[in-house]
């Protein structure tokens, strides 16, 4: 971790947060907007994990678990957008 990398990561995180806010203000439901929000969430999470937490240089077990956590929400955003009604049907009790 260097000062320059940290500063750049923070600026990028601010820019991505503002993008997310604009999406929240104007976005209508749709695949591309869902994908965009999922990608922004993934990038922000990865910046925290690799640059702030420095897990890119840490134990592989810790790194994989935390990186995996950072993918759960973005993956479920896309999955539930594409297959929401099918998944809802699977989670209903019969009768």
């Amino acid at each position: 971790m260097t000062t320059g990398k940290l500063n750049f990561s923070w600026l990028l995180l601010m820019g991505l947060t503002l993008s997310g806010t604009l999406m929240g203000e104007y976005a209508q439901p749709g695949f591309w907007i869902t994908l965009g929000i999922a990608v922004i969430t993934t990038i922000k999470g990865r910046l925290i994990i690799d640059q702030f937490m420095e897990l890119n240089q840490a134990s592989p077990v810790i790194r994989r678990i935390v990186r995996g956590f950072g993918l759960v929400v973005p993956a479920l955003m896309i999955l539930t957008y594409l297959l929401g009604s099918e998944l809802a049907a699977l989670t209903q009790l019969p009768g």
């Binding site: 997310g20 999470g45 925290i48």
Partner: peptide, 23 residues
Amino acid sequence: FASYWHATDLIWLMIFPLFYVLP
């Protein structure tokens, strides 16, 4: 402490789009 604080930040980064952004 830094690791805990960053992890708590990471969780918020997941919560924010789910409730405030995702239409």
